[in-house]
Simulated assay, not measured.
Amino acid sequence: MEQPQASLKSRVHTVTAKPSVKKKNQLGYGIALLAAIILFGVFLSNIKAPLAIRWMLGIALGFVLQRSRFCFTAATRDPFLTGSTSLLRAVLIAIMIATVGFAAIQYNAFSAGKPVPGNISPVGIHTIIGGIIFGIGAVIAGGCASGTLMRVGEAYIMNMIALVFFIAGSALGAYHFGWWKANVIKNAPSIFLPNVLGWPLAFFGQLVLLFALYWLALWWDYRKAE
Rank of each mutant, 00 (worst) to 15 (best):
I38C: 01
F204N: 04
K186R: 13
R11D: 05
H13L: 15
I140F: 13
V123M: 14
G131F: 15
A182V: 02
V91D: 00
R54M: 12
F70P: 02
A174P: 00
V152W: 02
G137S: 13
G83I: 07
L27Q: 03
N46Y: 11
N108W: 09
S68P: 04
G130N: 08
C71P: 01
F166V: 02
G173N: 11
V139D: 00
F204G: 06
V42I: 15
Q206W: 01
K9H: 07
L201Y: 13
F177E: 07
S86L: 03
V116K: 05
V139W: 09
S20P: 15
I105Y: 12
K186S: 14
G113S: 13
L149T: 12
A74Q: 01
Y214W: 06
L197I: 14
L39C: 10
V21G: 11
I136C: 11
F40L: 05
P200C: 08
A162R: 00
V123P: 08
S111D: 06
I140T: 04
S111R: 08
A75K: 02
L34C: 05
I132C: 11
K181S: 08
Y214F: 15
L92P: 01
I136W: 12
G41T: 02
F211Q: 07
L213W: 06
F192C: 01
G30D: 12
Y222F: 10
C71W: 01
K48D: 12
P194S: 09
S84I: 02
H126R: 06
Q26S: 09
Y156R: 05
K9F: 05
A49C: 01
F166E: 00
P194W: 07
T16D: 04
S86V: 10
C144N: 03
I95L: 09
A212G: 13
G62S: 07
A49N: 09
A212V: 14
S170P: 00
G58N: 11
F203C: 08
Q5F: 03
M96I: 07
P115C: 04
A138N: 11
I53Q: 01
Q206G: 13
A212I: 15
L213S: 01
L207M: 09
S45M: 03
Q66H: 08
Q206R: 03
V15A: 15
R89E: 05
L210N: 10
S45P: 06
G135R: 03
G101D: 05
Y107S: 08
